[in-house]
Amino acid sequence: MNKPVKTTFKIVTAIAAIIIVAVVVVIYRDHNPAGSSMFPKCVFFTMTGYKCPGCGTQRALHYLLNGEFRESFRQNPMFHVGMAYVVAYYVSKSPLVYPKYPKIADALSSAAVCIMWLVGIIAYWILRNV
């Protein structure tokens, strides 16, 4: 009895998500957040003057959508590494890969990788401000 409602909810959510992603893509492709006051600034940077691990993600997205990969990577490499991990994780969990190679997904979600991320994010946070 609940199923049609759930399916409708899923379809509406999916359409809303596609519209939001499309709007974000167009905005960030056509406008450079650097030097614009119309994009949210990092709260941590504004308050302390130090960069946070997420600083530069908006600029990185802008350059990425314009095909300027080197400039995009320069803005915030953590954004690229993070995205690469997210894509790799979902590919490894997909029905095409997971039944054949379950060890890839296991390795990607292992304690060692979690600790790597934890240490990596904090180390990156410190090092980019030195």
């Binding site: 941590f44 946070c52 691990p53 993600t57 997210v86 994780y89 979902y90 991320w117």
Partner: peptide, 24 residues
């Protein structure tokens, strides 16, 4: 872990980062 990383990188802020670390 994917969501902790995404939340930490995309929604970064001095107030939300400690929660991201607890999540990881």
């Amino acid at each position: 872990l994917v969501w902790s990383i995404l939340a930490t990188i995309l929604c970064c802020g001095v107030f939300s980062l400690p929660f991201g670390i607890i999540s990881i």
